[in-house]
Amino acid sequence: MDELIAILNEIRPGQKFSGAENFFDQGMLDSLDLTALVAALESRYEVFMDVDEIVADNFCNLAAIKTLLARKGVNL
């Protein structure tokens, strides 16, 4: 999980991602950050996000990202 937070902080330094309920509603990430996050996760975990998976709901908090990655065989 720490690694995930580090990835998020590389995109948005200084934000407190742990414990946040919805990164997008809380203004911590925007839609361009979402694309940067997808690129970072794909590169780090060698996974592929299909176009219908690149939606805010799948990346709105740490649990959601963890669930998505688990579906792709990456268990954090």
């Binding site: 839609s31 979402l34 694309t35 997808v38 690129a39 590169s43 996000m49 299909d50 176009v51 690149i54």
Partner: peptide
């Protein structure tokens, strides 16, 4: 093409 569809980002990372 995915990122172009999502955010008009034409090129790959």
């Amino acid at each position: 093409p995915r990122m172009y569809a999502v955010a008009k980002i034409l090129y790959s990372q």
